[in-house]
């Protein structure tokens, strides 16, 4: 199995993208924060009509809380505009490169018309990588100390 080959050929759709969580630019900051909580999601995609115009992540939420921001303002005032995105035909390798270069944890995937189709997150990429060696990761005892030093009953 050639990993590098699969990273550069496998579509980003294999990296367990989340369903896009969309809000409109006129929604209040508070509404979007509560939406993030209700969906247990780290990023909301802010749209104008069907087009993606910004992103609000839980990092942004933390900054707003720390600054005592006014949650009744429209989210367009505080979102990150023109977020980095990936085209739907991007590869997993490209997603990793864009994420590590930009320091992003969430990358919206958009179709040809700029409409969000999903969000790729670090967790999904790690899960995709682990799929190639599931026994090594999933078959571990929950506690590293739990591996028996001796064969039982022998």
């Amino acid at each position: 199995m050639d990993f590098q080959l699969s990273l550069d050929s496998e579509s980003v759709g294999s990296a367990y993208p989340d369903q896009p969580l969309a809000a409109t630019a006129d929604d209040s900051v508070g509404d979007v924060l509560q939406l993030l909580r209700a969906q247990r999601t780290g990023a909301a995609l802010i749209c104008d009509g069907a087009k993606l115009v910004g992103i609000l992540t839980e990092r942004d939420a933390l900054k707003l809380m720390a600054a005592g921001a006014d949650f009744s303002r429209p989210v367009r005032d505080v979102m990150s505009g023109n977020p980095a995105t990936l085209p739907a035909n991007a590869t997993v390798g490209e997603a990793i490169r864009v994420m590590s270069q930009g320091g992003y944890r969430h990358l919206p995937v958009v179709d040809d018309d700029g409409r969000p189709a999903g969000v790729v997150a670090v967790h999904g990429i790690v899960r995709y990588l682990v799929d190639d060696f599931p026994e090594t990761v999933y078959n571990l005892p929950p506690d590293p100390k739990a591996a028996p030093r001796e064969r039982e009953g022998a």
Binding site: M1, R149, E150, A154
Partner: peptide, 28 residues
């Protein structure tokens, strides 16, 4: 073998299968 002759690590939970890729071996 229950333990590695060379390093003394327990093999009981691992001897059933050998890592098939170098990345897997790196992880372990």
């Amino acid at each position: 073998a229950d333990e590695c002759e060379a390093c003394g690590e327990a093999l009981t939970d691992l001897s059933v299968r050998i890592p098939t890729t170098s990345v897997e071996a790196d992880l372990l």
